[in-house]
């Protein structure tokens, strides 16, 4: 027979855990709202920047047939591939980080005949690859919990420099993106070379567009760099929102499970108590019987 005291102790311990998970869920949902808000505000910038990039690419496209810029050259046999991933700094968010790691590993297999260089953001992902003795050229830990434009741009700029100097042929960004409160989706995005299919070539009458400085390369170089900086920053915002939504879900599930466990334990406790009473009764009755 299970010890009554033991069961009681278990119940109160599970209840304690439940309290923690419930609090964490509330914290995450509040943080999620904020993260969502930041991402939404930032989206305006993304829209405008893409619009501008489209227009300028369009202009260059007209003059030479295809976009004539270093950032758009696609190397069909990449020799060096850079993978940049964004993971969370903290755990307790279900499969959130693991999903990202899984995708990174899949990409490493895909490009197994090229040299792969990893760059990581977020403690959890970094810890995983470090544990598995996989080298990373770049890593930063306290960025995914509080996205910062300057830091993000500094982080990615070294890779962009490498790309310009021909040290790397491709830069891929992997992160777990936010879809809605209950769904996250892995995003795999090619940062460089800029995928010209992301640039919509609409026919706009651009004949009168003046450009200052009067050098297409200067302006498109700067624009592409900004586009990459921003994409990196947006990935961080998006990943943070996704992290909170994943944690919210995980904590919700944990709270429910704890509730169920408390229920089961209570039933067990009642049964054990019942059993104890029955045993005692039998003892009393049989004692009385023997006195007759």
């Amino acid at each position: 027979m299970a010890n009554l005291k033991e069961i009681k102790r278990k119940i109160s311990s599970v209840k304690g855990t439940q309290k923690t998970t419930r609090a964490m869920k509330l914290v995450s949902s509040a943080k999620l709202k904020r993260a969502e808000e930041v991402a939404k505000r930032s989206k305006v910038y993304a829209l405008k920047l893409t619009e501008l990039l489209n227009e300028i690419a369009q202009k260059m496209n007209n003059s030479s047939g295809e976009i004539d810029n270093i950032f758009f050259y696609e190397n069909p046999n990449p020799k060096v591939v850079d993978i940049v991933f964004v993971s969370a700094d903290k755990g307790l968010c279900g499969g959130f980080n693991y999903q990202t790691i899984k995708r990174v590993n899949k990409l490493r297999k895909e490009y197994s005949n090229a040299t792969i260089r990893l760059s990581g953001i977020g403690k959890k992902g970094i810890a995983f690859f470090r544990y598995n003795n996989i080298d990373m050229i770049n890593q930063i830990e306290d960025l995914s919990a509080s996205p910062d434009y300057d830091k993000a741009s500094k982080f990615i700029s070294t890779l962009v420099e490498d790309f310009i100097q021909g040290k790397t042929d491709k830069i891929i960004l992997v992160y777990n993106g936010y879809v809605n409160m209950i769904t996250q989706e892995i995003v795999e995005q090619q940062l460089l070379p800029v995928d010209s299919s992301t640039v919509e070539l609409k026919s706009v009458s651009m004949s009168e567009l003046e450009v200052e400085p009067d050098d297409d390369d200067t302006i498109i170089d700067a624009l592409v760099k900004k586009y990459i900086d921003y994409t990196m920053y947006y990935a961080l915002l998006n990943s943070l929102a996704a992290e909170h939504s994943a944690r919210m879900q995980a904590m919700d599930a944990a709270t429910n499970n704890a509730g169920e466990m408390v229920k089961k334990l209570t039933v067990k406790y009642n049964k054990a108590r019942q059993e104890a009473i029955t045993t005692e009764l039998i003892e009393i009755i049989s004692g009385m019987e023997s006195l007759k």
């Binding site: 300028i56 003046e210 200052e212 302006i219």
Partner: peptide, 19 residues
């Protein structure tokens, strides 16, 4: 503050893109 110098814009300005 354009990269080639400061410039003012009034309505009906011609299209221009500048750093």
């Amino acid at each position: 503050p354009g990269s080639e110098g400061e410039f003012g814009v009034l309505p009906k300005h011609s299209t221009i893109l500048s750093l």
